[in-house]
């Protein structure tokens, strides 16, 4: 059960959200100008990285706002949350520290 911080409502359980797939995949301005292959890529092809992934979530049980999350697909660590329409933040250069036993 992920804990996701809605930019508005704060931290809520994953079950309050709907997942929206990869972020920053804009609907093409003029789909009809695209080839079938390009349109097909928009419809069906998404990244599937092992590591950090910018993805969309919507606070369905709360304020119903769409926003973006950078989540590590292996560790589920969430390193950034930012409103829809904003660019993906540049990660800080230093590695986040690890707690040691």
């Amino acid at each position: 059960m992920l804990l996701i911080a809605c930019p508005w409502c704060g931290e809520r359980d994953e079950t309050e959200y709907h997942y929206g797939g990869q972020a920053h995949v804009a609907h093409p301005a003029d789909p009809h100008a695209l080839s079938d292959a390009e349109w097909g890529a928009y419809l069906f092809v998404r990244d599937n990285p092992k590591g950090e992934f910018a993805e969309r979530w919507m606070h369905a049980a709360g304020c119903r706002r769409w926003f973006n999350v950078v989540r590590h697909t292996v560790t589920h660590d969430i390193s950034a949350v930012y409103p829809a329409g904003q660019p993906r933040p540049v990660p800080p250069s230093d590695e986040h520290s690890e707690v040691t036993a």
Partner: peptide, 13 residues
């Protein structure tokens, strides 16, 4: 409703 909000918020603000 989610679908409508998605387009309004993310594509056509």
């Amino acid at each position: 409703l989610d679908w409508m909000e998605e387009w309004l918020q993310t594509e056509w603000p």
